[in-house]
Design a binder for these strands. Structure first.
Lengths: 143, 143
DNA sequence: ATGGCCTTCGCCCGAAAGTATGATTCTTCT
DNA sequence: AGAAGAATCATACTTTCGGGCGAAGGCCAT
């Protein structure tokens, strides 16, 4: 990551240098300012397109377990401080259940489920249940 | 498509106009050429990034990840009748994005995303986004 | 026994998600 | 040319989530 930033920086520097060259090569020779600016504009537009393309390359590594059974990562459980009940909720959540359905399944009230989910989000450092599921899976908390 | 081209043209025209304004507002008032050019450069770089993002949002383009060789199940795609755009939304959804974030990422309005998600739920026969993610994964629609 | 947890539950409120319906534009296929 | 399917957006409405309080009982360690 640092390398790419450095690379962008160097590219910018190179372009600035090119600008200076153009400035003394063309501008002083009575080329119009519009022309000069136009060149700069085109150049930087191209740079922008290129950077835009670079930036949107996806990288999201995904760790899947095609083999046998799912093993719970208990170390991660302790690190995050997720309680057994919260873990139940996370599991139900990952199965696509709504809070109300989770409440019915666990025989508790809707409010209780909400409390659990809220605490869960804090402990997982996420904002939405979809993210919680994602993170839970990647951490080996749920299958 | 014609409209987008027209839009780009207008954007460029607007920027050129802005350039002229800057030219008479700042340049003649003894601001340095470097400053002026810098503003132009930043402006057009931003434009370039934006254009780059817009241009690359076509194509389903799922980058295969190093450690799991995900292959899109195109048969399932046809069976469910999920459109390319809906597929984009599903992917973003699985990455834990909110509808608003998806809208920003795909350069469309929130309402459009909602429409896509609704159609998606019907086609996947689910009721919630969490279920859509589950089903999407199990059907090989998303990594 | 006191402080710290987990679990349970309540209320309020705003934000996000989802449903329904209709409209426009554009491409593609017949 | 016309039908059909996309993609886009809008408006209006309901439901679900999520945050921010607070609180009570149980359990377990220092």
């Amino acid at each position: 990551m640092r390398k790419t930033i450095l690379f962008y920086g160097l590219s910018l520097a190179a372009l600035v240098f090119l600008m200076k060259v153009l400035e003394y090569r063309f501008f002083v020779r009575d080329f119009s300012l519009e022309f000069y600016v136009g060149v700069v504009a085109v150049l930087f537009t191209a740079l922008g397109v290129w950077v835009g393309l670079r930036l949107t390359r996806k990288k999201t590594a995904f760790v899947v377990m095609p083999s046998g059974r799912f093993v719970l990562n208990e170390a991660a459980l302790k690190e995050t401080g997720i309680s057994p009940r919260e873990h139940d909720v996370l599991d139900a959540m990952a199965n696509g259940l709504s809070n109300q359905e989770i409440a019915d399944k666990l025989f508790v009230s809707l409010n209780t489920v909400k409390t659990h989910t809220s605490n869960l989000f804090v402990k997982l450092d996420v904002k939405r249940r979809t993210q919680a599921i994602q993170k839970g899976k990647s951490m080996g908390l749920i299958p």
